[in-house]
Design a binder for these strands. Structure first.
Lengths: 237, 237
DNA sequence: AATTATTTGTCCGTATGTATG
DNA sequence: CCATACATACGGACAAATAAT
């Protein structure tokens, strides 16, 4: 169970991100919020501290707690990212995220090819074999696909990159799970479908990494993500 | 003036990031820290809430406040990033950051070429002209170089990408300012030096964006950053 | 399985600090 | 310089969770 201050952070943070409170606006003072939500001032204060660490608000004595401009937000926070992806008025965000992904995932593949250790390569090999065995099986494919990309990511041996891509992928997964039931076109919307053709695209990446060909690894990974981006653009525009 | 809880967040956060407290370790209980730092329990509690939002710790009833593994940290927080860059035992981080940059800045250049508005292009043009006028002037070059990259970044019209690269660049600037006085080799270490040759590299990017050639823009930007990476590797290895 | 001990979580009365008008 | 309005800080009390016994 989450503490009350955490619940309040979720409540207020979501409202800010979804634009219910706009940048520059003054939030209710601690005492008023405390009454409104039937919690102590302590809880409200801790919530404001959390929101302030997320870059969503800044508290000032006398003038109160103000909503900060979007440029101050901590975009790479899993909650904030999830809220942005859920926002139906903010379809741009998923495209923006995909664009960033176009930058990062190919780099991860290139680094896996150039810096991956022997153990990393063994892991990637095993993950690819699982993927081969999952053709035709939707559920198994999704997991194997996730693990395959994860094994490449780990082989980049770059903690920052690993953390960043993980958040991105987690947020996209949550968003997909919430959005999928609403669309007819599940097959096309998912990361990629469990077909023989999709497997071959993955094989290209796999073989490039194994032969330490970073340029090809980068390029083939880019092609995979470009396909997703094209699909998303079709859906949203 | 910073509030006491913020001071405490800085104090404890830095210690965690620099490895003085290691993941899994239990921090002192609220009451003890309160005595140690001569602050109220309220202040300590708010500090813990802030650190918890940064992904550095998690508080549990009865078992105390524990330092979380690196995979949970909010890497894209300006304080955390600055601490990591300052850490002399963590030379890898600046290389890792440069690798991420290799992913992001070229994408920003490509998007500027493909999606930049007329106003964006005017801004980039002006920024490049300033750069041309700064050849030979170290101080002016640094500013003009920053503004040139910033104008490209803005033209990507992707808030997420803009926010992310800004944090990265801010952290690198802080790090450079703190590290530079220690090295002899200032010229080579800086982003790039104010020479005619460096200007020509920038001109390639500029012209590619102007002619909406996203492939070339991406590639030339990548070359610029690859050079920095090579220099860093020389310095640190 | 029940009890206890320990630590965070919550509440609130009070006091101080600080920027604004 | 004073009054005001807000955040900030203090500390005593109790509630809730959970590890240890």
């Amino acid at each position: 169970m989450k503490s009350r201050s955490e619940q309040l952070i979720l409540e207020l943070g979501k409202r800010i991100v979804l634009g219910e409170y706009i940048p520059g606006e003054i939030l209710p003072k601690v005492e008023d919020l405390s009454e409104e939500y039937y919690v102590s001032r302590t809880v409200v204060r801790e919530a404001y501290k959390g929101l302030s660490t997320l870059g969503l608000v800044r508290s000032n004595q006398r003038s109160g707690t103000v909503v900060l401009p979007r440029s101050e937000w901590q975009w790479w926070n899993i909650e904030i990212m999830t809220w942005l992806l859920e926002d139906p008025n903010n379809k741009d965000f998923i495209l923006h995220l995909t664009e960033v992904r176009m930058g990062l995932e190919p780099i991860a593949a290139a680094l896996a090819a150039s810096k991956g250790t022997e153990q990393d390569r063994i892991n990637i090999k095993e993950a690819f074999q699982k993927l081969e065995q999952s053709v035709g099986d939707e559920k198994a494919w999704i997991k194997a696909d996730y693990d395959f990309h994860e094994s490449i990511l780990k082989a980049s041996n770059n903690d920052l990159l690993i953390g960043t891509i993980r958040i991105m992928r987690k947020a996209l997964t949550v968003s997909r799970e919430k959005t999928l039931p609403l669309t007819n076109d599940n097959q096309e919307f998912s990361y990629d479908s469990p077909t023989k053709a999709a497997l071959e695209k993955h094989r290209m990446i796999y073989e490039a990494i194994m032969s330490r060909d970073e340029e090809t690894a980068k390029q083939k990974m880019m092609e995979l993500i470009l396909r997703v981006r094209t699909i998303l653009q079709k859906i949203f525009n």
